[in-house]
Design a protein around this nucleic acid. Sequence first.
DNA 1: AATTTTCTTGACCGATTGGTCAGCTTGTGT
DNA 2: ACACAAGCTGACCAATCGGTCAAGAAAATT
Lengths: 215, 215
Amino acid sequence: MAPPTAQPEKRPQSRQAARAQTESAILTAAQTVFAEAGFGGATMQMIADLAGLPKANLHYYYATKEDLYRHVVQDIFEIWLDAAASFDHAPDPATGIGGYIDAKMEISRRHPNGSKVWASEVMHGAPVIQDYLESTLRDWTDGRIAVIQKWIDAGQMAPISPRHLLYMLWATTQHYADFGHQVQTLNGGKPLSKAEWQTAKDTVKQIILRGIRAA
Amino acid sequence: MAPPTAQPEKRPQSRQAARAQTESAILTAAQTVFAEAGFGGATMQMIADLAGLPKANLHYYYATKEDLYRHVVQDIFEIWLDAAASFDHAPDPATGIGGYIDAKMEISRRHPNGSKVWASEVMHGAPVIQDYLESTLRDWTDGRIAVIQKWIDAGQMAPISPRHLLYMLWATTQHYADFGHQVQTLNGGKPLSKAEWQTAKDTVKQIILRGIRAA
DNA sequence: AATTTTCTTGACCGATTGGTCAGCTTGTGT
DNA sequence: ACACAAGCTGACCAATCGGTCAAGAAAATT
């Protein structure tokens, strides 16, 4: 599954800092393994090896595999929600939605494994974070729909369905993480270069912003 | 995992027809279980139960779990490629791409489990169908890029990146299958009605077709 | 009717998994 | 220095998994 990545950094340090560091190493390794193998395909041994720890040690910090998985998913969810900052307080659709696309594309580029774990979780019926979908995500979505609707009512953009516009934004931006392997294969097997990422961003923004602007 | 669905239809029939029927029942059950649990989370026993057959019988038709999985993925891949029919021989972008969106949205509606299995496979690095990505899918993609480029050169649409436009089309249409659970949750827990599906289709088509039309 | 082939199945097996635990080491407070 | 708590780990276990197999049932062929 790859060589261990954890650089123990054997310095004397406070117990609290060491704990936080170990937990973080476990979460990072778990995110990678869950993304590559799925929840069912991942094993605690794989995660332990990648984190450079004995398996029994994982169970000292996280009682069960499901407990560890839940923490990974929740971490992603928070990153995911934070991307909305540029969405609010925007004077117009081009700024707000354009900024949101930039933010979400950047997350796809920097946290592809997190995005994959989230996608996997939802695809399998969200057994772990169903309550988040029904509370936090629903509220978040309703709020953004209201913002978009306000723009529409003010004549700043075309009268399309705000809800399905949001779905399009999620789908297009997360595609570059979730289907990153496919994108890379169709890119000659090489990861997207910086310029190619920029082209992706620009294309997505151009099509969507032109697609929603007032007639 | 749900009650068995296989209706044996105990009629005297040719051996060949019975075999085809059994294989189809297994594939359908497998598609559902793989979509719901992932490859690692799925068990042959789950598939057998859903198909209404003893587990040992599955191994008579499909030697291994991986063999069965491969057949499921290949079936989806073919349906997936067939959706391109309306893409070719189209006189203009609106007809060709609009028709492609319709076809792919219809697949998401009718074969959500297939789409999920495909997504899962790609997300985990395409361990089984990597060769398809590198041959069939790459050729298919290059061909469609050429068509789009031709439209651009003829001034029939805006000069955007054909490749990333394709990614957008895949992402937006497959989102309604792969993230169907999330869409349903945000729809008050109820599946999209016929009218809501139509709104989804119309919104996707409107935004993209307006987004790519010649300035 | 006899025989061969295809299909079906319960019982079984080695391997792997998530999780446990007793005992050890290391750090902390007094 | 001492005692206690926190952190760590190899060895182990019950449960489950994919897959096998021998023996029988059902159909096709002769």
